[in-house]
Computed example of a mutant assay.
Amino acid sequence: MIVKGLTVGLLQENCYIFGCSRTRSAVIIDPGDNARAILRLVEQQALRVEKIINTHAHFDHVLAVPAVRAATGAPFLLHRAELPILHDLPNRVRLWLDMDVDPVDDPDDFLEHGQIIQVGDEALEVRFTPGHSPGHVVFVHHAGRQVFAGDTLFQGSIGRFDLPGADGPTLLHSIREQLLTLPDDYAVYPGHGPATTIGYERVHNPYVGERASLR
């Protein structure tokens, strides 16, 4: 197993490269910006990118998708419910960053809850976790006891739910049903900020932890 992360873009988004050490197959999770740095890391690790898989379609997670897809030929996968978010990307970038960007083309295929993404000898389970966005998913690597959580669960926090298509109660339910049901020692690699663990957030998270006020 190979896991490499790098923080990209103005919103400091965490992109992850997940690969198989034997076959050198890899997927790129949430290429949000700076395609050159992402591709350089792939080359340094001598990996072959087979898929681009996204937790969701907010612009800070997908801006590098076109360049990475063009450079690698890898298909882009996303949950179908994220299409409205993806299609609104130019408007969101203009609103947030006062910049004009081209649209990102539709995915080559769609992710589904319970789907297994094979990466050489490794496997990622797709879990549907809406709330931060309507089609958000997370990727769970059970063999390595880790979850790539996108913008659901952060160290001491949770994803925003004041954005178009978001819903707070839905997000809390997703975290409790799809993340906090994992064992305590699972590492959580979020879309922003430092890594944490399921066990730490189960106790200390002010939104979903044992002493949380939002229930």
Rank of each mutant, 00 (worst) to 15 (best):
R80M: 03
A81L: 13
A81Y: 06
L83Y: 00
L83K: 05
L83G: 01
I85K: 03
D88K: 12
L89W: 12
R92F: 10
R92E: 07
V93A: 13
V93N: 15
V93P: 13
L95D: 15
L95K: 15
L95G: 14
L95T: 15
W96N: 13
M99H: 10
M99S: 13
D100A: 14
D102I: 08
P103H: 13
D105M: 13
D105C: 12
F110P: 00
F110D: 03
L111A: 04
L111Q: 00
E112A: 11
E112W: 04
Q115Y: 00
V119W: 01
E122C: 14
A123L: 10
L124H: 08
L124S: 09
R127T: 07
G131V: 06
G131H: 07
H132P: 06
H136W: 06
H136V: 04
V137G: 01
V138Q: 00
H141K: 04
H141Q: 11
H142V: 04
A143N: 14
G144R: 15
Q146S: 11
Q146V: 11
Q146Y: 10
F148A: 03
A149K: 02
G150C: 05
G156C: 10
G156M: 06
I158A: 02
I158P: 01
G159H: 00
F161V: 03
F161I: 02
D167S: 13
D167W: 09
G168F: 11
G168T: 09
T170R: 14
L171H: 10
L171K: 07
L172V: 15
L172P: 05
R176P: 05
R176V: 04
E177T: 15
E177P: 08
L182F: 08
L182H: 08
D184R: 13
D184I: 05
Y186N: 07
A187C: 07
V188H: 05
Y189W: 12
H192P: 07
H192K: 12
A195E: 13
A195C: 14
T196S: 12
T196V: 08
T197Q: 07
G199P: 04
Y200G: 04
E201S: 01
E201T: 01
V203E: 05
H204P: 00
H204N: 02
N205P: 00
N205K: 03
Y207K: 04
